[in-house]
Write a protein that binds this DNA or RNA. Structure first.
Lengths: 225, 225
DNA sequence: CGATGAAGCGGAATGTGTTCCGGTTAAACA
DNA sequence: TGTTTAACCGGAACACATTCCGCTTCATCG
């Protein structure tokens, strides 16, 4: 099961809840004691527009960089109104997140159900290390978009992917150090990989990802002993 | 010596360089081999406006919260034009930073030249621990403003203060673990105290500051052994 | 004291993210 | 196939940060 971002702030309604790549929506509807999952297909025009918007956004990012990604431009290039963008993606950071999404899902399934050492089967320490390394690489890979997804709304990050990372790492830390505050430690280990900090260090200060990974490994090593 | 923020991006000119609380500007002017420090007083009308703006901004924050701090409102309340705000503070995050500034300076002088264990004189491990604890408290104290200063442009405004923290902690870590990558470790130890994460955990998740401090102490403890 | 120019000032103009709402349409159902 | 309705669409309107530029004022210096 891949964890997706939940509601954004207080603004976004349920339109995007549980949404997946194909644009279907999973609704939990209480029926007596049992909960039945009802799958509700996205309307065809909506699906068409979603595809057009994502294609247009990707083209604009490829062409002009993330900075040139304005909602009005994307809407114009996709041939839809801006209202449609907001209906689909909530806000600017939501659009960025959608652009990131495919990779994100691959990454999440890799550490949840992929082969060791990232996936299950390896020692917790090795898994945690592999996870942080892989996450660092993943962040760098789409750094611009990630900075934007995080910056547009300060809490956007904590609504979805972050929770998945946090839950996973907290589980590993709990195995490593049952007596410790695994939730807080997971936060602390994840924090150095925040997009803005990473972008600053790598781009402005010439620090390589490898050094960041090594420092994190150092921290993790201290934890296991 | 208190470290202040540097230039913002590419936009802000030299108007605010080397600025201090009283609004004076220190200019280094090369004269032959020697460099002479020339102190140039802020114009009286500018000083008056600065004070009016800061007072108005403080009142608005106290009244409506940080969210209600709009540039136009502050300008109107202070009885100046918005252009004046921008001339003085560069942008929204600059204004937030100015609001934070007094406390910030106290804090910095406390860990740079204050009494131990925060200031010089204590063991590096104890100082690092005390520093992280104190920083956590300080962040919580003005969390809203700090989130805003950080969010408007990541590292734009808070960069100066962050550099001070980073330099200090990196020095302590280097004493603690001479062979380690103290710069990266300092980043990693500072990152969990980033305002947005802290705000989220404390306000949305009910995590107390004490737990965050303890986790950080745990991490630090692992480092010293 | 009066000229001079650099610094400061204000507010209109601009750009862009976000919301709103009347009209449209796809899908379900009789 | 006709009816119904919830979802969707578009773009005008809005809010707000930021920029621009012509005018004003302070401080200096002859």
């Amino acid at each position: 099961m891949v964890v997706k971002r939940g509601d954004h702030d207080t603004k976004v309604d349920t339109a995007n809840r549980g949404e997946t790549d194909a644009g279907v929506e999973v609704v939990n509807r209480g029926v007596g004691d049992a909960e039945v999952e009802v799958v509700k297909r996205e309307r065809t025009d909506a699906a068409r527009n979603r595809a057009k918007i994502l294609a247009a956004a990707e083209a604009i990012v490829a062409d002009r960089g993330v900075g040139g990604l304005s909602m009005a431009d994307v809407a114009a290039a996709a041939g839809v109104g801006v209202g449609t963008l907001y209906r689909r993606f909530g806000d600017r950071s939501g659009l960025a997140y959608a652009l990131i999404d495919r990779r994100e899902r691959e990454f999440q399934s890799a550490f949840i159900e992929g082969p060791p050492p990232l996936g299950p089967g390896a020692e917790p320490a090795a898994r945690a290390r592999a996870f942080l390394d892989a996450l660092a690489d993943r962040m760098v890979e789409q750094l611009d978009l990630l900075v934007m997804a995080e910056t547009a709304g300060p809490f956007a990050r904590f609504g979805g992917a972050y929770d998945a990372y946090h839950g996973h790492l907290a589980m590993l830390v709990a195995q490593l150090r049952p007596e410790a505050d695994s939730a807080c430690l997971a936060d602390a280990l994840l924090a150095p990989l925040a997009a803005p900090l990473l972008a600053h260090r790598i781009r402005e200060c010439g620090v390589g990802v490898e050094r960041v990974k090594a420092a994190l490994g150092d921290l993790l090593g201290g934890l296991t002993r």
